[in-house]
Nucleic acid binder design. Sequence first.
DNA 1: TCCTTTCATCGATATCTATCAATACATGCT
DNA 2: AGCATGTATTGATAGATATCGATGAAAGGA
Lengths: 123, 123
Amino acid sequence: MKKLATITCCAPGAPPLKPKEFESLSARFKALADPTRLAIVNRLASRDAACVCEFNSLGLSQPTISHHLKVLREAGLIEIAYRRGTFYFYRLVPEAVEALAFALGGSAQPKLVLATAEGTVAG
Amino acid sequence: MKKLATITCCAPGAPPLKPKEFESLSARFKALADPTRLAIVNRLASRDAACVCEFNSLGLSQPTISHHLKVLREAGLIEIAYRRGTFYFYRLVPEAVEALAFALGGSAQPKLVLATAEGTVAG
DNA sequence: TCCTTTCATCGATATCTATCAATACATGCT
DNA sequence: AGCATGTATTGATAGATATCGATGAAAGGA
């Protein structure tokens, strides 16, 4: 299991961080600093997994969507869940989102663990 | 007093948002998508208020610091606390940080958090 | 084998952004 | 008034990024 950095940064009382931590944190916030990528993440948040083809409805070209998926993937926020034929299905990486929430002072511990490993249907 | 949007966006189970909400949310994440600005916020997080002159130690020119302060100010994350002579003192806007943490699925509860955690430097 | 479909990558480009030097503004002091 | 200092604003520029069209890669079907 991959250990996600759990550093606080921006909430009152946060301890001073090092330059390298600002770099890595800002890189992950950068992934969320785009409306299209937020829309993708938001859509993945309400499903178990979503096909890339679903994002056509965002009104952007296919290469552009692919680019944004890559940015989110490299930030660790999403990942490829599985493939069915030529269809790619992406899913959210909840721990990565939690880590960012924590950096902003969100709840220190995952209080309602809404699922074990996989298969959270987010009712 | 502007009402801060308390919308969830990116955590599992988040409801679908509207285009305009992605715009405003991404704009605020954009303010945190820079290592220098994170360093500024981080420094303000451990103090009541900090003089602009303190940020000289970040190794950037004065106009550049001023620019980043403006970006953070326009994002509502910081504000001018007071002025003493020609010295400007900025402070964090905790509610704005909380709103972003909430958007990422952080605890919806208000801010008595940092009471239990000991070792908060803050002083 | 050839074609179709889905998605990723490449190349080009217009826009945005971080940065600095120069300048303007504001405040306090003499 | 005149000067010195701390910040903000302006203008310029190099680098980053969002976007698209064209192309490539992978999988399945005729």
